[in-house]
Simulated scan of single mutants.
Amino acid sequence: MFESENRTALPLASSAGGCGCCPSEPSSSRVGTGDVEFSVEGLTCGHCVQTVEKAVSALEGVESASIELAPGGRSRLVVSGHADSVAVREAVTSAGYTFINN
Rank of each mutant, 00 (worst) to 15 (best):
S39N: 05
G18R: 05
V52T: 09
S80T: 14
V36C: 01
G72K: 12
C19A: 09
C21M: 12
P26K: 03
E41T: 07
C48E: 03
A58L: 05
V49G: 03
G18Y: 04
T44I: 05
L43C: 05
S14V: 03
C19L: 06
G46W: 03
S66F: 00
A16W: 10
M1Q: 02
E60M: 03
C19I: 05
E25P: 00
V79C: 08
C45N: 13
S15I: 09
S57C: 03
E60I: 05
A55N: 11
A13G: 15
G61P: 12
C19E: 06
R7M: 09
E60L: 06
F38D: 04
E68T: 14
L43A: 04
R30P: 01
C45A: 08
R7A: 07
S85Y: 02
S15Y: 04
G17T: 10
E53T: 15
A83V: 12
V49L: 04
E5Y: 08
P11F: 02
C22V: 13
T51W: 00
C19N: 11
V86P: 00
S57Y: 00
R74H: 11
H47W: 07
R30T: 14
E37V: 15
R30A: 15
G72W: 09
V56T: 13
C21T: 13
E37C: 03
E53W: 05
G17C: 03
P26T: 15
L12P: 00
V36L: 01
E53K: 08
G81L: 07
V79K: 12
Q50K: 15
G17F: 04
F38L: 09
L59Q: 10
S66E: 13
A55H: 09
A65H: 10
G61S: 11
S27L: 07
H82T: 15
G81Q: 13
V88A: 05
G81R: 11
C22R: 04
H82W: 00
K54R: 15
S15K: 12
C21F: 10
L59H: 10
T44H: 08
A13H: 02
E53Q: 14
G46S: 08
E68R: 11
L59V: 12
S27W: 02
D84Y: 04
L12T: 10
V52K: 08
R74C: 00
S64Y: 08
P23Q: 10
T33V: 11
G46P: 09
G18C: 04
G18Q: 06
A9F: 02
G34A: 03
L59F: 07
S85C: 01
T51C: 07
G20K: 06
A70C: 11
P71D: 08
P71Y: 10
R30L: 12
T51P: 00
G17H: 06
E25G: 01
A9S: 13
G34T: 09
C22F: 02
G72S: 11
K54F: 01
I67Y: 06
K54I: 00
S39L: 15
E60R: 14
A9I: 14
L77N: 10
